[in-house]
C-alpha cells in the first residue's frame, strides 16, 4: 500500500488522529471518519459551498482540500458553533429570518457567514468595496453580503432571508 498517511488535527476543539488513504478529502474525513455529517457534499468540486467549514478560522471548501495536507490544523464545523444548547447567533438568526427551506446548504451558509462577518470586521475588502475606502471594518450592506456569500449556492432560493439573517448578526 504505502498510500496512507497519519494525520492529526483538531476538530471542534477535539484532537483527531488517524491513518488515512491519501485520497481522502477533508470533507470525507469529517463525514466518514469523524462522523460529523453537518458539512454537506453538494457538488464535490468547489462550486456550491455546501461543504464550507472553518480552517484555522478561515472559511474553505472542505471538498477540495486533501486531509493529508491538513496536519496540525484546527477545523470548526457547524457542529462546533453552538455552545451546548445555546445556538450561535447566526444559527438563531437563520431560524428567526426563515433563512432556509430544505436546509441542505444551511451548515455551509452559516459557517461561511461566520467567516464573512469576521473578514469584514478585520477590514478585508470585497470586489464591491470601494477601492478608496479607508482601511478598517467594512459595513455589511446588502450588496456586500451578496458578494461575500456568493460562493454558497441555495437551490431553494432562500437568498433574500439569508442576506437579512447575516446582516442582523453583523450589526
Amino acid at each position: 500500500m504505502g498510500a496512507m498517511t497519519a494525520v492529526t488535527l483538531h476538530i471542534n476543539g477535539e484532537r483527531f488522529s488517524r491513518e488515512l488513504d491519501n485520497r481522502t478529502t477533508l470533507l470525507d474525513l469529517l463525514r466518514e471518519h469523524a462522523h460529523l455529517s453537518g458539512a454537506k457534499k453538494g457538488c464535490d468540486h468547489g462550486q456550491c459551498g455546501a461543504c464550507t467549514v472553518l480552517l484555522d478560522g478561515r472559511r474553505v471548501n472542505a471538498c477540495l482540500l486533501l486531509a493529508v495536507s491538513m496536519d496540525g490544523t484546527d477545523v470548526t464545523t457547524i457542529e462546533g458553533l453552538s455552545d451546548g444548547n445555546a445556538l450561535h447567533p447566526l444559527q438563531q438568526a437563520f431560524l428567526d429570518h426563515d433563512a432556509f427551506q430544505c436546509g441542505f446548504c444551511t451548515p455551509g451558509q452559516i459557517c461561511s457567514a461566520v467567516a464573512a462577518i469576521a473578514e469584514a470586521r478585520a477590514g478585508w475588502p470585497s470586489v464591491v468595496t470601494a477601492q478608496d475606502e479607508p482601511e478598517g471594518p467594512v459595513e455589511l450592506t446588502a450588496p456586500e453580503v451578496r458578494e461575500r456569500m456568493s460562493g454558497n449556492l441555495c437551490r431553494c432560493g432562500a437568498y433574500v432571508n439569508i442576506v437579512s439573517a447575516v446582516r442582523e448578526v453583523a450589526r
Partner: peptide
C-alpha cells in the same frame, strides 16, 4: 494578498483581480 494594505494602496488591480475571481472559500485556500 488581496487584503494586504500595501497591495490595496500601491497595486490595487492585484486586489481587484483576485477579489473578482473565485469566492472567499477558494481564495482562502
Amino acid at each position: 494578498l488581496a487584503s494586504r494594505g500595501i497591495v490595496r494602496e500601491r497595486y490595487p488591480i492585484v486586489s481587484e483581480a483576485l477579489l473578482s475571481g473565485a469566492p472567499a472559500q477558494l481564495r482562502n485556500a
